[in-house]
Computed example of a mutant assay.
Amino acid sequence: MTAPHHVPGVLSLIGVDAGSANLREADHLIHDLLDHLALTPGTVACTHLIRTDERRGTAVSLALPDAATAEAVWERIAGWQSPGVGAALGERSYGAKQAARTAALAAAEHARRSGGRAVVYPGAERLTGTVTVADLLVLTAIDEVTVVGAPMADGQGPDPAMPVLTRDHVRPEWRDGRLTLALAPAAGGALAPFEVPNPTPCCADHA
């Protein structure tokens, strides 16, 4: 992964909980935030499953390119009037207290890079149609690909020339500090993302 794809630290991470019940709703929320907050290129936006005594659902996190950009986005969030929304940036919180707490959990998980499913990330817009494994690693922020049910031998992944049917829906996840995409065998000897669009790619609704 090249330097421009570096993900910033905690001072650049904002968590948002708008009551999304599932991944599809959270994907929509991320695209709405991209538009409403005028997020800059280089933003990494992830979904996070929340399982607490008070909340069962999905929150999102926004990793901005730098702390100054995060401050500007935070000011826009503070002017966002939407019932039940909570947000967190470092020790600061905004909106509904319970939602702000779960937003902080999402931001903390992203900061640790221990979890979070990336919906928006550098290079994601290039992953349409059929690409190669090499494209996934060279053109995007994805650090690693794995094939479900096929353990890597000597740390080697699939053939870089292997075609990947993106289905216009590529959602890598943070695992042990690396943005990792799980692939599965597909028709014609190709691979495809393990997560299947349901029922259609969210981004199609935001075209």
Rank of each mutant, 00 (worst) to 15 (best):
I77Y: 06
A124Y: 00
A134L: 10
A38I: 03
D53Y: 07
A118G: 04
P163F: 11
D135E: 06
G15K: 02
D17Y: 08
I14W: 09
P199W: 12
A3Q: 13
H28N: 11
G42W: 02
A63T: 08
P122A: 08
G149E: 08
D168L: 12
D66N: 15
V145D: 03
P163G: 13
L165M: 15
A190K: 04
P158T: 03
A18K: 04
V138F: 01
P65M: 14
Q98N: 06
L139Y: 01
V73L: 11
L165N: 10
T47W: 04
G90C: 12
R76S: 15
C46M: 03
A190P: 01
A99V: 01
V170Q: 09
R56K: 05
H48N: 07
G115Y: 05
T102C: 01
R117C: 09
Q81M: 05
V148P: 00
E25Q: 15
W174E: 08
Y121H: 10
L34H: 04
P193M: 12
W74D: 13
A100P: 00
A184W: 01
T166I: 12
T40P: 03
S12D: 14
P199S: 13
R51Q: 14
E25I: 06
V133M: 03
P8K: 09
D66Y: 09
G9R: 09
L89C: 05
L34A: 12
P185N: 08
G155D: 06
P122S: 07
D168Y: 13
M1I: 06
S93Y: 10
G95Y: 02
D27H: 15
A38M: 06
E75W: 08
V119S: 05
T132D: 05
G129P: 08
P4R: 11
H5C: 04
R76T: 14
G57T: 03
V133S: 03
H36A: 13
V148N: 02
I77C: 08
A111T: 08
A192M: 12
L137F: 04
